[in-house]
């Protein structure tokens, strides 16, 4: 499943979830994670419900994460400082840690990468700063992503790619995402795997599989 790991339809953005699903179908996606939208299927695109959780302390976000437990909602938590990130990455029920490019250099280090790999929580590489930002902000984001990709190669935690699109105009095709991701050192194989990871987050492979 080729999935855009985070889009923000209306009321956060200017496009309805149905319109974004139509656009995603044209752009080559099979599924989407839509924030605050119900799980549905439209135009052959499966829309997964997502929730974006932000908070200053891990204790603050815990009730919201617990509320989503047992549902098929993708829980995405916005990254904070180093301690917050480590606590979130060890938390059950969290699927994705996003906004790592906005944290300081030590916000996501080798220790956090190891925890992410152990707990199977994906780190989100949002293409929004690469597409929309200019100058120092974009350079800082590219630098942080290069660091994340380097850690990913070492610790093999899952990566997901997203556009964080609030409008159909902010969505990009799979080919464009692949080209943009090459700026941070991801090759075609890495991109394919990252786009497929979001679909696997909610239904991870069981630790033991019975083969008949």
């Amino acid at each position: 499943m080729i999935t855009d790991a985070c889009i923000c339809p209306r009321p956060r953005g200017d496009s309805s979830v149905r319109r974004m699903a139509l656009e995603a179908h044209e752009l080559g996606f099979d599924s989407l994670v839509a924030i605050d939208a119900p799980t549905c299927e439209y135009a052959g695109v499966s829309v997964m419900s997502g929730v974006l959780v932000r908070g200053a302390f891990a204790q603050e976000i815990l009730p919201r994460v617990k509320r989503c437990k047992g549902t098929d909602t993708v829980v995405i938590v916005e990254a904070g400082d180093s301690g917050f990130n480590r606590a979130v990455l060890a938390m059950r029920g969290v699927h994705v840690l996003c906004g790592v490019h906005l944290t300081d250099r030590y916000g996501f280090d080798h220790v956090a990468a190891k925890i992410a790999a152990d707990s199977g929580i994906a780190i989100d590489i949002s293409l929004a700063p690469i597409i929309h930002e200019r100058g120092a902000t974009r350079q800082r984001a590219l630098d942080r992503y290069l660091d994340i990709v380097m850690l990913q190669r070492r610790f093999e935690f899952p990566l997901v790619l997203s556009t964080h699109a609030r409008s159909v105009l902010e969505m990009r095709s799979v080919r464009e995402i692949s080209a943009l991701a090459s700026l941070v050192g991801l090759d075609v194989g890495d991109v394919k795997q990252a786009l497929g990871n979001a679909g696997r987050l909610c239904s991870p492979e069981p630790a033991v599989q019975v083969i008949q």
Partner: peptide, 23 residues
């Protein structure tokens, strides 16, 4: 072409109007 295509995907507005260029 690759460099141009990447640059084209970062075009978000033209003459004050929001646009997207799809290669």
């Amino acid at each position: 072409e690759r460099e141009l295509a990447i640059a084209l995907s970062t075009v978000t507005s033209c003459g004050g109007q929001r646009i997207a260029l799809r290669t």
